[in-house]
Amino acid sequence: MIPQLGAALAAEEAAIYAYGVIGVHLNSRGDETEARTAEQAHRGRRDYLVARLSQLKASSAPSPAGYELPFPVTDRATALKLAIRIEDGVAQSWRPVLTVTTGNDRGTALAAMTGAAVRATRWRRLAEVTPVTLAFPGRP
């Protein structure tokens, strides 16, 4: 379970970083609220993962100071594109946790994966990307 939780933690840390970049390029109240809410959700998942790994006597790797973005973020369109990419990636990072957990841990992993998938759908709608859903969120 520890490697999978560690991978989810890395994805959540990357998401928190990415939303810092995304926020700079959004300029409507709606977009900004969406991004802030998403970032808070990722911080909550990050805190859960750090605590859970600590319970399991595993140390969480320190998060890197910066990340290389998959493409330059220069405007609203690229910011929304990154937000979609990030949420899809977070969903993918939680999916393997489902197979190595049971009970509440699995329930939390599913809630985290679902939350990311729903945010990806909301970002797709804001970016006017269709279709707004994936058949199998979290599947790489």
Partner: peptide, 11 residues
């Protein structure tokens, strides 16, 4: 089966 069913729930 957990991953597939989880993806369906999320979808």
């Amino acid at each position: 089966r957990a991953a597939l069913v989880g993806s369906i729930a999320a979808c």
